[in-house]
Simulated scan of single mutants.
Amino acid sequence: MINPMELTGKHVLITGGSSGIGRACAIQASRLGAKVTIIARNEDKLKETLFLMDNEKEHAYYLKDLSDVSSIEKLVKTIVLERGSIDSFVHAAGIGTSRVLKDSKTNYVDKMFKIHVFAFIELVRCLTLKNNLNDGASLIGISSVSAEKGNISQCVYGAAKASMNSFTKPASLELVKRKIRVNTVAFGMVSTDMFQEFLDNGGDNKVLERQYLGVVDVESAANAVMFLLCDSAKFITGSVIPVYGGY
């Protein structure tokens, strides 16, 4: 039987691997045969993720705050030196989505863009330098429906995710000669701690009525990402893939 979701022998790098969609992606990638490297700020949670993955000893984590964008190039060099060149990358690192406009001061905007946008661009830039990334690689940013249909308290978050989406098309054109694909997956509501934080901090709970298929479970979210990582999706690039559940 042919399995279109196959990552055996692939080295997959995932940021935000300590929780939420990032953790789910790490677990699913391990089940599909990949060697996985995860990055996040919380070491205890990174260790929890490793424990949940298949073939735990095949994988590794790196402790890093990606808001320190200037240090990302050194991190990428270290990972490649210690773990080998990379076949696929998922930028799932993120911070809380909820802050109303009057409270969205410059330091908050700067932090939001550093994690979601600047770190994503710098990781893609560094990965695509010589010998870091194998030809035919798949690079994915985790985006959001809020880039197009943001709700109350999502002004800055939505703007950051829209910036991620805008990056994919021109980046994919620059990398097409190496058959490196660049996409984002824009999710609606996913059952993560971040979504609960959105509701707890004044987010409009009526959005639950608009996502007609219901809140996406993290395993289904990860499966959408896994498809784009696999060779089955080798002709999808420069795209924003909506996983809105009918939103």
Rank of each mutant, 00 (worst) to 15 (best):
I152M: 06
P4I: 12
K234H: 10
D44N: 11
A137M: 04
S153W: 01
F198W: 08
Q154T: 13
S18D: 08
L129C: 08
I86F: 03
C155E: 10
K130A: 08
A40F: 07
E43F: 02
A160R: 04
T37R: 12
K35Y: 14
V185G: 08
F51V: 02
G16C: 02
L32A: 11
P4N: 01
G22M: 00
G245H: 07
G238H: 05
K77W: 01
Y247M: 05
S153Q: 15
H91M: 02
G33V: 04
S30C: 04
D65P: 12
N183Y: 07
K130H: 12
F51S: 07
G245L: 05
T237E: 01
S19M: 00
C230I: 01
A119C: 06
L101H: 10
E56F: 07
A221M: 01
K10A: 00
N132P: 06
L123V: 07
C230Q: 05
C25F: 03
L101I: 11
K10H: 09
G22N: 04
N55Q: 13
G96M: 01
F118Q: 08
S153R: 10
N42D: 15
Y212R: 04
E209W: 00
L213V: 04
I39S: 09
L7P: 10
D110M: 06
V36K: 15
C126F: 07
V69D: 12
G158R: 06
S70D: 15
T168C: 07
R23M: 09
S18K: 03
L50P: 10
A60D: 09
T49A: 02
G17R: 07
K10I: 00
S220K: 09
T97C: 05
L13G: 03
G202T: 06
E43K: 08
S19N: 11
S104N: 14
I27T: 13
M5N: 09
V225Y: 05
V124I: 13
E122N: 14
V117I: 07
I241S: 02
R83G: 01
K179C: 13
Y247G: 00
V182W: 05
M164F: 01
S88M: 03
N223S: 13
I241P: 06
I27M: 09
F227C: 03
K149H: 11
S138G: 10
A93D: 10
A93L: 01
K105D: 14
F113L: 09
R99T: 12
I180D: 14
A24S: 15
S19D: 10
E73Q: 12
E6S: 01
K10Q: 12
L173G: 03
S232A: 15
D217M: 04
Q196A: 03
V145T: 10
F167Q: 11
I38D: 09
L129Q: 12
A26Q: 14
A40C: 04
T184Q: 02
I180T: 11
K57H: 11
T8C: 03
A60W: 11
G96E: 06
N165A: 06
L75F: 09
V124A: 02
C25H: 14
K130P: 12
F113S: 12
A159G: 15
S172R: 08
K206D: 13
E219P: 05
C126D: 11
I86V: 10
R23P: 06
I180A: 02
E122S: 13
I140M: 03
K149R: 15
L127D: 05
A222N: 07
S67N: 14
E58R: 09
L46Q: 15
K45A: 00
L32C: 13
S67Y: 00
V36I: 04
R83Q: 15
H59A: 00
L127G: 07
A222R: 03
